[in-house]
Design a protein around this nucleic acid. Structure first.
Lengths: 314, 314
DNA sequence: TTGAAAGCGTTACCAT
DNA sequence: ATGGTAACGCTTTCAA
């Protein structure tokens, strides 16, 4: 049946016939028990509460489809911090052959734990010491820097960064931390003046944040946002303060393309290639599973900025 | 171990001790094979391509968490039409104990197939003949009607409906069909004039659709949208045609609350209770699994319209 | 209250 | 090229 041993043409035919007659389908549990592989992958994703972003959704979708292409099913595991039990179970009970871990922190105990027990996994994003591990990620520092350079080229001298909530930054979320780094460094390089803000993942927080930015320094003429969910609120807050985008004020940042095109004016942004990321993650994980001895691979993506209509000359 | 048979206190202690020493964890596959239950549920969700909406994302998240609360894992299966193979596999290979099926069509062969083979499942939305089946859903007809009545009460006489893409309507998607029905009926009841449109699930389509609405009948002063993804584009199209919302033109519809609050002006809309829906679906499925003989139950939700700032007097 | 054995439905290995 | 037989790790049943 698995084509793993010599069979005469005649027998093969006979067997196929019976399979068809009986509508035989191998039982997954029995198969898993016998050969030790479940053909299931775990996807560890952040629990609700942090509201999901558009890019996370696209990512999950693409992971599931890429896995299906390789005949793997995907088991979801909501797991935020630490050694969340739901996730532990997947491992301990051997429900999955491998895992993809989202929302990596720079210092992530889930990663260290998986490494210790030698479980095959790929992370989305990289920890502080990613060498010798399997990961795919986005170069958030480069993206944030690209935004700064774009604004500087347009003549803006005073910028603001709208980051994810302080809690996430403190917890060491990679995108928030590396984005901040990249922003800060680029601002220094170009000799710009800038402030950074943490902002809740919702419209109201964005609105308040925009107001605060203009209050703190009315000379601010542009902002970079790493916070997709706050974007609508930022626009609204700017409008309320009488700043027109892109006439009086430029906005750019990092977001899913679909989302960037939805707002008015469409956001000039580094488009997060969520689908590509998902497919890559599965590619790497499959490779690691097929050959446990293979050397760790990784892939860092740095999508270019898509020019839309939310930025203009200072 | 499962506490299913009398054990002396002393033996229990000894066993627990060894469990701790060895770090024993039962193997899920073996357990599934032995007692025929996988403690895994399938979530059949639409494949990418139809871009996921905010409410779908919230729904998936809540399903996974509700399932985790009951010690079930969730296996994702992208499956749109018909007898998609990925989904068939889940059933045939007995990978899951039950399933939740999203994006139901009025005449859905997945549903009829599951019914024929007697597989336990709950649908999100109901088919044309939902009696005697397990489902949770939203009363899209009532929601669309409520939007119409809201607009009529404000004095609007000429409306437009922005529905999902024609392809989905034709395929018999429940939300598109029942929403259209409810809209049409309410319009007739109030003696209003109205046109209906199908619109792609993206901003550009929404923009074009808004332009077309005003071209077809410049007297139109309000629209109802069932298309969350097009909303940003609709707003933009209206603005381009010189209509201010809500001053010159009112917009309402059905959307996830988070999304409705993000756009400017915030959308007066029937908020889709995606999280409640997910939890309910798991509740029903668990009930059905616990007692296969129990009579089919269902739950129809009709959330009220949340007044925000996108509608005003005609 | 406890021990032993017989499945559950596969795959893998050892004889033919 | 084929048939027979152990595992795989658990649950359940039957004896003691």
């Amino acid at each position: 049946m698995s084509g793993k041993r010599p069979v005469s043409e005649e027998t093969r035919r006979r067997v196929q016939q019976v399979i068809a007659e009986l509508g035989y389908q191998p039982n997954a549990s029995a198969r898993a028990l016998a050969n030790g592989r479940t053909r299931t992958l775990g996807l560890v994703f952040p629990p609700a509460g942090h509201h999901y972003t558009g890019m996370q959704l696209d990512f999950i979708g693409s992971v599931v489809e890429a896995a299906a292409d390789r005949d793997y099913d995907v088991l979801l595991s909501p797991s935020g911090m630490d050694s969340d039990c739901s996730f532990q179970r997947l491992l301990a009970e051997r429900r999955v052959d491998g895992a993809i871990v989202m929302e990596i922190r720079l210092d992530d105990d889930r990663v260290s734990h998986l490494n210790e027990v030698g479980f095959p996994f790929v992370t989305i994003g990289r920890t502080a010491h990613p060498d010798g591990t399997w990961w795919v990620g986005i170069d958030h520092a480069a993206l944030a820097a690209a935004c700064v350079h774009h604004l500087a080229d347009l003549g803006h001298r005073t910028l603001a960064l709208v980051n994810r909530p302080e809690q996430l930054l403190k917890a060491g979320y990679e995108s928030a931390r590396r984005g901040l780094e990249g922003f800060t460094k680029a601002v220094a390089e170009r000799g710009l003046s800038a402030r950074t803000y943490n902002c809740g993942d919702d419209a109201l927080s964005g609105q308040l944040c925009a107001a605060r930015i203009l209050r703190d320094d009315p000379a601010t003429t542009a902002l970079v946002t790493l916070n997709e969910a706050a974007l609508g609120g930022l626009y609204r807050g700017l409008a309320e303060s009488g700043r027109l985008v892109p006439g009086d004020f430029s906005v750019t940042g990092v977001a899913a393309a679909r989302w960037a095109e939805t707002v008015t004016p469409p956001l000039t942004a580094a488009d997060v290639p969520a689908e590509q990321l998902g497919r890559l993650a599965i590619d790497l994980l499959a490779e690691r599973l097929d050959d446990p001895e293979s050397i760790p691979r990784s892939r860092l993506l740095a999508p270019p900025i898509s020019l839309r209509s939310s930025t203009g000359p200072a």
